[in-house]
Structure formats: structure tokens, C-alpha cells
């Protein structure tokens, strides 16, 4: 706890990002409960209304309350971020740690696959995968997770390589502890820091990429209030009713920015050379 307080005191940007993120999380949890509108409730007679007391962010082309949709969309977006990063984390760390610890042919095979995947621009790979799986939110999440996993594998492998030659690991091996236990208790646990940095940075890309797939029609299907899909659906009204597309767009920007601020600060914090400068 004191470490966290110390970290936050030394990193004002991370603190700002964290505070805004907490506000976003509270808003998306409680906002929809308070809102008098449903996210998919149509009211075509009141379409494309400007911001007002009744509709804080106006209404969209089918008369749905934009504020309500953005708040609902936030639930999906945060869940998407969590889901995608969790899948990428588990898969990437599993293979990365295995590669780093086992070495030899196993390392060779796993890392060449990882290299091959990293050689594609992430979004292009995600588009190809999402198109192949068929458009749905779950498939889009899976596609993004697959493109993010190699980065976790890279970090996990380098951690495993560094840690597996440490005396305490050698001691554990010589004591005859089972490999699974060594990997979990010593290699993974001691390499967690950089992986957490990677996770917090990936949150932003996960949200952004899934929103991009939604924007391209390869992710969330209407009438789901996913931010990317909402930006895309309302782009055609940009000139007369900019708030409809801008609101979910700004929400994406704000959330991704928060995660990136926290991630960057964490990266500095776990980097010994930079940390000295911070302290």
C-alpha cells in the first residue's frame, strides 16, 4: 500500500490517469442505473437532437440517448479490455515462459511463430482474423487477443531467460522441485513486474483495436452500444450532428489515454535506470 502511495506521489500523470479511470469506471457502473433511457430504446421522432437537459449528449439517428449509449458502451469497452488482455496474457505468458525456460528446439519453434505474428501490423492481422472468424464481438476480441499475445510471449521469455539462471532457481532445481512449481513460484512470480506494465499498455491497444474492428463492421453488431461501432454508424451525421459520433469517440480517447498514462508510468517505475531519476 505504501508502495502504491509512493508510486502515485511520484507520478502525477499516472495519478491523473488513475483518477479519471476510476471516474470512468464508476460512471459506467452507476450511470446506466440512473439514466432514464434504455441503450436500445428507439424514439425516432426525437432523432438527432442536440445536447439538452433531457439528453445531455443529444440523441442519435434513431432517437436513442447518446449519453446512455456511451455509458453502456463503456461497460462493454472495459470488459473487452479486460477480456482481451486476460486471454493475451495467459496465452502469451504460458508460451513465453515455456520458451525461455526450456530453451533449445521448444524456444526456437515458439519464438519463430511469435516473430511471424509480430511481423504483421497488429491491426491488419486482427482484421484478417476477425474477417475469417465472422463478425461478432466475441470473435473480434479473440482476434485482438491473438495479435496481442506475442508481445506478452516476448516479455515473458526474456524474463524467464534472465530469471532461470538466478541462484534461487538453480537451488530450486537442485532441490528437485517439480518444473511446474519452479515455473509458477519462481520464474513467473519474479518476472511479473514487466508483464504488468505490458498488460496496462496493452489495455489501450486492446480497446482501440476492438473499437477499430467495430468501426469496420467486423466487431460488435447493432444495436449493441459498443463505442467503435457507434462512431462508425454515426459518422454520416458528422456535419449536422457531430455530437453523436464525437461522444463515443471522445470516450475511446479518454479511456485509452488513461491506460497509456498509467502504463507509461509503470514502465518507468519498473525500469531501474529510469526509476532512479524518478526517485
Amino acid at each position: 500500500m505504501t508502495a502504491l502511495v509512493h508510486f502515485l506521489r511520484k507520478n502525477s500523470l499516472a495519478t491523473a490517469g488513475g483518477l479519471v479511470l476510476v471516474a470512468v469506471i464508476l460512471a459506467v457502473i452507476f450511470g446506466p442505473m440512473i439514466s432514464p433511457y434504455g441503450p436500445t430504446k428507439l424514439d425516432v421522432l426525437n432523432k438527432l437532437q442536440g445536447p439538452s437537459w433531457a439528453h445531455w449528449l443529444g440523441t442519435d439517428s434513431l432517437g436513442r440517448d447518446v449519453m446512455t449509449r456511451v455509458l453502456h458502451g463503456g461497460r462493454y469497452t472495459l470488459a473487452i479490455g479486460m477480456g482481451v488482455v486476460s486471454i493475451a496474457f495467459v496465452v502469451g505468458v504460458l508460451f513465453g515462459t515455456l520458451a525461455g525456460f526450456a530453451g533449445g528446439a521448444v524456444d526456437m519453434i515458439i519464438m519463430r511463430v511469435v516473430d511471424a505474428m509480430l511481423s504483421f501490423p497488429a491491426l491488419v492481422l486482427a482484421i484478417a482474423l476477425a474477417a475469417a472468424f465472422g463478425p461478432s464481438l466475441n470473435n473480434a476480441m479473440l482476434a485482438v487477443a491473438i495479435t496481442l499475445a506475442p508481445q506478452f510471449a516476448r516479455v515473458a521469455r526474456s524474463q524467464a531467460l534472465a530469471i532461470s539462471v538466478k541462484p534461487y532457481v538453480e537451488a530450486a532445481v537442485s532441490l528437485g522441485l517439480p518444473t511446474r512449481r519452479i515455473l509458477w513460484r519462481y520464474v513467473f512470480a519474479n518476472g511479473l513486474g514487466p508483464l504488468l506494465v505490458q498488460a496496462s499498455l496493452s489495455f489501450g491497444s486492446a480497446i482501440l483495436q476492438t473499437a477499430s474492428l467495430g468501426f469496420l463492421g467486423l466487431g460488435a453488431q447493432p444495436p449493441l452500444a459498443e463505442w467503435g461501432a457507434d462512431v462508425s454508424a454515426n459518422l454520416q451525421y458528422m456535419r449536422e450532428s457531430p455530437w453523436v459520433a464525437l461522444s463515443p469517440g471522445m470516450a475511446i480517447l479518454l479511456t485509452v489515454l488513461c491506460f497509456n498514462l498509467i502504463g507509461d508510468s509503470l514502465a518507468d517505475w519498473f525500469n531501474p535506470r529510469r526509476r532512479n531519476e524518478i526517485d
Binding site: T40, L42, L62, P223
Partner: peptide
């Protein structure tokens, strides 16, 4: 966007009589 809006409208109409429909833009 045209088909998305029409699908959303029809889906809401179906929901009014209790039918659940999931949109798949293909």
C-alpha cells in the same frame, strides 16, 4: 449504415412483441 439502421429498427419492433432477434450484418 442504411442496413444497420433498418435492422435496428426492425429488431426493436420485434422486441416490442417479445421476440428476441440478434442482428448479423454480413
Amino acid at each position: 449504415p442504411l442496413w444497420g439502421a433498418v435492422a435496428t429498427f426492425v429488431q426493436a419492433n420485434l422486441a416490442d412483441i417479445g421476440i428476441n432477434a440478434t442482428i448479423a450484418q454480413t
